[in-house]
């Protein structure tokens, strides 16, 4: 069986690419994510304006060639603010997912692999995390930690632990029952060896699309926390914060719709990639 599923030699790069089954929407989604990542890595390359200092004479001007998303109430270029806000809006979602995957994955791995009382203890803990509404959980954690975007990310990450723990546990249990794991036990593999060499890689494969999905959701949750003012204060420009500022200027609706559209397109792309990963793996 493994002979067939290994990479077939002699496949040209083009054919390999075709076998990945990338549809136009998936390609577009990757493009969107690439742009957002580029925004967060080097925002100064994408805009000549300052994200903090505005030109008061230009305040609240409509979208134009000079100001793609218009300007805000202080005359700052909104496109520039969105570009500079990408770093904290998107990388904080990454922090959240990493926290969720590492802690949740570890809990799931241990409780799925060892079973018994380890499983019972962790299962109760996960039940408790699941019982508390996720957004409320994030709000109280960020309240306890202090209002900063990084704390909002940590809070969001904690609220996703239960999700990853459950997925990891069920994947580990599935893998543990596989014949090759049994064979490895018979060949004298130690528990630790089997856990790291066989169970972890196989169980983590199906975690990837879910981690990507959760990445998109974390962007939304962190935007929600920023919207409520639980992220970095102005003049930082998290997308949620930009929308929150914009809502006081609804007569100039681009102040809401431009950052909102960027957020929606980003999350849509992330979700599309997650769906594609799930189908193709």
């Amino acid at each position: 069986m493994s002979l067939v599923s290994e990479n077939i030699p002699g496949l040209s790069p083009l054919e390999k690419l075709r076998s990945l089954n990338i549809t136009p929407t998936v390609a577009l989604s990757f493009l969107v994510i690439a742009i957002v990542i580029a925004w967060s890595l080097a925002p100064q390359l994408f805009s000549g304006h300052s994200p903090v200092n505005g030109v008061p004479a230009d305040k609240l001007s409509a979208p134009s060639l000079e100001h793609w998303f218009g300007t805000d109430h202080l005359g700052r270029d909104l496109y520039t603010r969105v570009v500079y806000g990408a770093a904290s809006s998107v990388s904080s979602a990454l922090v959240a997912v990493v926290i969720g995957v590492v802690i949740g994955g570890l809990i799931g791995l241990l409780s799925g692999f060892f079973g018994g009382w380890v499983d019972v203890v962790f299962a109760r803990f996960v039940d408790v995390l699941l019982a508390i509404p996720k957004f409320l959980l994030a709000v109280i954690v960020v309240t306890a930690l202090g209002f900063e975007t990084i704390n909002a990310a940590i809070a969001t990450g904690i609220s996703t632990i239960a999700f990853f723990a459950r997925v990891a546990r069920s994947e580990v249990i599935k893998t543990r029952r596989a014949t090759f794991v049994e064979a490895s036990f018979l060949l004298g593999g130690s528990r630790g060896f089997i856990l790291l060499r066989h169970v972890l890689p196989n169980a983590s494969r199906s975690m990837l699309p879910l981690a990507v999905l959760q990445f998109g959701e974390s962007i939304l949750v962190i935007a929600g926390l920023a919207f409520l003012g639980y992220g970095d204060p102005p003049p930082s420009s998290d997308w949620g914060l930009l929308i929150s500022i914009g809502k006081d200027y609804l007569k100039w609706p681009w102040l809401v719709y431009a950052p909102a559209l960027v957020t929606i397109v980003t999350v849509l792309s992330v979700n599309r990639i997650s769906r594609w990963l799930r189908k193709s793996h």
Binding site: G216, L220, A223, G224, F227, G240, I243, S244, G246, K247, L250, V256, Y257, A260, T263, I264, V267, L268, N271
Partner: peptide
């Protein structure tokens, strides 16, 4: 709908 923050829906 899953990709749209609900405050954006409200503001819209």
């Amino acid at each position: 709908f899953l990709s749209t923050p609900n405050f954006v829906i409200g503001l819209f």
